[in-house]
């Protein structure tokens, strides 16, 4: 794939004896939308802060776009956008003024900044309220303004820390679309969230962090099989009558490792997709097949499994 954007090696952070991040190895490539998951206190935000150079790692190395954030924080900050979880704006300033300030802090020439800000405000759908004070904006609007704010500096890499918390479904939809939009424009996005289905919708890859450890990492479906079923496919078949003969017959099929009887349905674990064969077998054994489905690995299930 593309260029490596984030690379950490045995990254650790200890606060007063408490280990927030423990030997974390991350590898994120350009153009990815990386879902960064984990319960509260797992160390997600700490990791981001270290990646931004806002917090010093206790040990380990970090490379962000080839820079060491600890030594060259300014270079990193120039190309990295960070939307903190509790993003705040200057309430007395208008949306536009807030963005102008950010542009100024990034040393953008005034004319260019104005143009970019106008475009961004319309991209995030805030053109109407761009000259209102931020205090009058809704939570969702502020969140979108936050997106625009990190976009002002046209970053290569974007960290979104819980960008969808506390806003309404429509707002969430907007944020997700914008995030996808950013990725489309070539930005690498690191998306931290608890909202697993959102992550599932937009992220190409996820990493799950628990107690400072990266407990799972990869693309969602592969990750699911790996985490939940030990890499197997699980097929659920609803049959008219469950009896031992059928179970034994299925068990005898090649590739089937386990069959569980759950009353009116059978749970079949196998190492490849055997739905055709199983349905044929059921029908041929004069039983009625009422339904069949192969289990999809929802992120939620993976998450629960991984963290349990």
């Amino acid at each position: 794939m593309g260029q490596v954007v984030i690379e950490t090696k045995d990254l650790s952070k200890t606060y007063d004896g408490f280990t927030a991040v423990d030997k974390l190895n991350l590898h994120i490539e350009e153009g990815e939308i990386f879902g960064f998951l984990g319960p509260n206190g797992a160390g997600k935000t700490t990791t981001i802060l270290m990646l931004l150079g806002l917090t010093e790692p206790s040990s380990g190395t970090i490379q962000v776009c080839g820079y060491n954030p600890d030594r060259e924080p300014l270079e990193v900050k120039r190309i990295v956008g960070y939307l903190p979880e509790k993003v705040g704006f200057y309430e007395d300033l208008t949306a536009r003024q807030n963005l102008e300030y950010t542009a100024e802090l990034n040393n953008l020439p005034r004319g260019e900044a104005q143009e970019r800000i106008s475009n961004l405000l319309s991209t995030v759908g805030l053109s109407q309220v761009s000259d209102q004070e931020v205090r009058k904006l809704s939570r969702g609007m502020k969140q979108r303004l936050g997106i625009a704010d990190i976009w002002v500096k046209d970053p290569k890499l974007v960290f979104l820390d819980e960008p969808t918390s506390g806003i309404d479904p429509e707002g969430i939809e907007d944020i997700l679309n914008l995030t996808a939009n950013m990725a489309k424009r070539g930005m690498t996005v690191v998306f931290c969230s608890h909202q697993l289905h959102q992550v599932q919708r937009i992220c190409t890859r996820v990493g799950i962090l628990a107690k400072g450890h990266l407990v799972a990492e990869g693309q969602i479906d592969g990750l699911g099989r790996q985490a939940i079923a030990g890499g197997r496919y699980r097929i659920e078949a609803q049959v008219g009558q469950v009896h031992q003969e059928l179970i034994d017959a299925i068990k005898r099929m090649g590739g089937v490792t386990e069959v569980q009887d759950s009353g009116d349905s059978l749970l079949i674990s196998c190492n490849k997709d055997l739905r055709k064969q199983i349905s044929k077998l059921i029908v041929e054994s004069d039983n009625s097949l009422l339904g069949m489905r192969i289990e999809e690995y929802s992120l939620e299930a993976i998450y629960k499994k991984v963290l349990s």
């Binding site: 270079e75 900050k77 960070y82 903190p84 509790k86 704006f89 950010t102 936050g146 704010d149 500096k153």
Partner: peptide, 15 residues
Amino acid sequence: RTSGNLSRLLSQPIY
């Protein structure tokens, strides 16, 4: 800090 501006500010390329 309380308004949430500080971390946003600190993520800008300024000392």
